[in-house]
Design a binder for these strands. Structure first.
Length: 596
RNA sequence: GGCCCCGUAGCUCAGUUGGAUAGAGCAUCAGAUUCCUAAUCUGAGGGUCAGAGGUUCGAAUCCUCUCGGGGUCACCA
């Protein structure tokens, strides 16, 4: 981390503040000749200790610099410790293990966290909006039917990731790629056409294999009948198909947007694959030309696929992208045997379009079945942008549905898959969103309809929301006793916090201090689940302290006999509620003020 | 067969990008209710981080191999 980088950061993160303290001590030692003037002092960190008993904050500075300074780590630490302990804000600093420096801070440092949170409010831990545009593409479900639970996880993940990046200063565009070209939407159009004839009174019998049998196309057929009457009946398919297709896609996209709205997801840009065109002069041809000028396109033969050979495999010469140049396993076809472009070719053009719109950072969120597709798209982005753009592809693994421990059977062919809408209608948006995020994206996830609505510690959604509600319950009860004390007012904000010295209170304070660094790390790693886990831990800290007040009445947040102490504790509880609400907001989950 | 993901307590999972004696919840056992919401909390037991090598001050984490589970594998979208 450069010096400039440190200064540009908000100084809310106390771990960075102490990195700075150590950096200053090192330059002091240099100027006094205790350390070499040209010693590179970068690369160390100050972090919360992993275990109790290792102080409040810990640094690996001596371990990181030892080799460069040609000193034993513990000796180097020995130079730093006296300087650290000389400070008022550091109660103790000791050398531990191979050369860690464990510091115990004076309680005032922690108590001050609350003052900062109450001042910054929702901005605590956030960074001001920066100028780096980031494109997050997620959902991108085919417009051939309603959203089902398989889409849901990626949708929630992408949305929360976008919000998380936004909280760290990203200039985020949320984007949906509509696969409205190709055979699937033609099949959709033919299915809708059948429903159209049905709406005009014809008995259409069974929906043929290869078409979409779901009832959800019936309204589309009815609308077509209303608008066109019998006018489309006696035409050739070439005439009615574009008309029906457009109507069907529009209807499906309207359904999808409304399904997404049910889980509070919205996109800034809906990008149509069809708009990329086809054939001469299209953006797809342009993208292929861009690759060709860079020497990554050639006519050639592909190796037969490994494993069992498809029945209709034929060796042929075709237009290929040299993706092996960028680490892919094989070169990839750009044109099909009928001369039209492949889906991949369209995707290349799409990503080139993103780049030309100014996005040098792109994130795609895909389902698990697309993992084999990552390398070729990354290869294409690298090739087209001369490696200037970075694309991160996040894969969301499958969601397995359970009901009270029993697997929920689904058959997509029979059309009885569980839709996103059914899921949300039954359990609500909050549990859906939180549970989809309470797991790493690349691990499979079990979702139990019954468990997620349980009111118990076993259900993390409830547990976190309850902590927030409990805080507000405390405020209400406080006003029963001190009717003129305003939790949001100056008396609380300016309260003397030095009385917050109970170990349980300090635990909460230390957890609050971790919030900015946790957010930054989660955003950098593109891992919103870290925030969900953090909120669970913060909720546990608050519940825990609340309960200590049962055994030890002097620890209760509300102390009828001590107005000043009550004000200080209101500040603590208020700061905690603020962070719970702020974090939940990033995850897109509500923070209720009471549970019922 | 190739590629990708996963393998951590009986179960479900974290592990802050290489840090110290590996952590939560559930389940089990023992406790807390005149009391700010017991919808919660306190404590105990439970581990060869799948296995074997390697890299270094230091590995659950990085590299190689083996075993086991899942996904995927010309032209579809």
């Amino acid at each position: 981390m450069t010096r400039r980088g440190r200064q540009q950061r908000f100084c809310m993160n106390i771990f960075y503040q102490y990195e700075e303290v150590i950096a200053e001590i090192i330059s002091g030692l240099k100027s006094r000749g205790a350390l070499a003037e040209d010693l590179d002092a970068g690369g160390f960190s100050v972090e919360p200790p992993r275990e109790d008993g290792h102080g409040d904050i810990t640094s690996n500075v001596a371990l990181v610099l030892a080799k460069r300074a040609k000193m034993a780590p513990r000796d180097l630490a020995g130079l730093l410790v006296p300087e650290l302990t000389a400070r008022d804000d550091i109660q103790a600093a000791e050398i531990a293990g191979p050369g860690f420096i464990n510091m115990t801070l004076s309680p005032g440092v922690w108590q001050n966290i609350v003052t900062v949170i109450l001042r910054e409010g929702e901005d605590y831990g956030r960074k001001p909006k920066g100028s780096v545009p980031v494109n997050v593409e997620y959902v991108s479900a085919n417009p051939t039917g309603p959203m089902h639970v398989g889409h849901c996880r990626g949708a929630v993940f992408g949305d929360a990731l976008a919000s998380l990046l936004e909280s760290q200063g990203g200039d985020i565009t949320r984007e949906y790629y509509i696969n409205d070209a190709g055979a699937q939407v033609d099949a959709l159009a033919r299915s809708a056409y059948l429903r159209y004839r049905e709406a005009l009174g014809e008995d259409i019998g069974e929906i043929p294999a290869g078409l979409y049998p779901g009832d959800y196309l019936k309204p589309v057929g009815a609308d077509l009948a209303k608008i066109h009457g019998a006018a489309l009946l006696d035409r050739d398919e070439a005439e009615w198909l574009p008309v029906v297709r457009e109507a069907a896609i529009a209807a499906m996209m309207a359904d999808i947007k409304s399904d997404l709205a049910a889980v509070n997801i919205r996109h800034d840009v809906f990008f149509s694959e069809r708009s990329l065109g086809d054939g001469e002069g299209s953006r797809i041809e342009h993208a292929i030309e861009e690759l060709r000028t860079r020497g990554f396109v050639y006519e050639g033969h592909l190796e037969p696929p490994k494993g069992k050979l498809p029945d209709d495999w034929e060796d042929r010469e075709q237009l290929l992208f040299r993706s092996t140049e960028f680490g892919d396993d094989g070169d990839r076809a750009l044109r099909k045997s009928d001369g039209s472009h492949t889906y991949f070719a369209a995707d290349i053009a799409y990503h080139l379009d993103k780049y030309s719109r100014g996005f040098e950072k792109m994130i795609d969120v895909w389902g698990a079945d697309h993992s084999g597709y990552i390398k070729r798209v990354k290869a294409a982005v690298a090739a087209l942008t001369d490696q200037k753009a970075e694309l991160d592809v996040k894969i969301c693994q499958l969601v397995r549905l359970f009901r009270a421990g029993e697997p929920v059977k689904m058959s997509k062919r029979a059309g009885d898959f569980v839709t996103l809408r059914e899921l949300v209608d039954e359990v609500g948006a909050d549990p859906v969103r939180f549970m989809m995020l309470y797991r790493k994206n690349d691990a499979p996830l079990d979702f139990d309809f019954v468990k997620v609505t349980e009111k118990s510690r076993d259900n993390p959604v409830f547990y976190v929301q309850y902590a927030h509600a409990r805080a507000h319950s405390v405020f209400r009860n406080m006003n029963e006793i001190f009717s003129d004390m305003d939790v949001a007012g100056d008396e609380v904000a300016m309260a003397d916090l030095s009385v917050l010295d109970d170990p349980g209170e300090l635990d909460i304070l230390k957890r609050l201090a971790q919030y900015p660094g946790m957010l930054e790390g989660a955003a950098k790693a593109h891992e919103p689940h870290r925030l969900a886990f953090y909120l669970y831990e913060l909720a546990a800290d608050l519940h825990s302290q609340w309960n200590r007040g049962k055994e030890s009445p002097q620890l209760r947040f509300i102390r009828e006999d001590d107005r000043d102490l009550t004000a200080a504790r209101m500040a603590l509880v208020s700061g905690t509620a603020e962070i719970l609400a702020s974090g939940l907001k990033i995850l897109g989950v509500t923070a209720p003020e009471e549970m019922r």
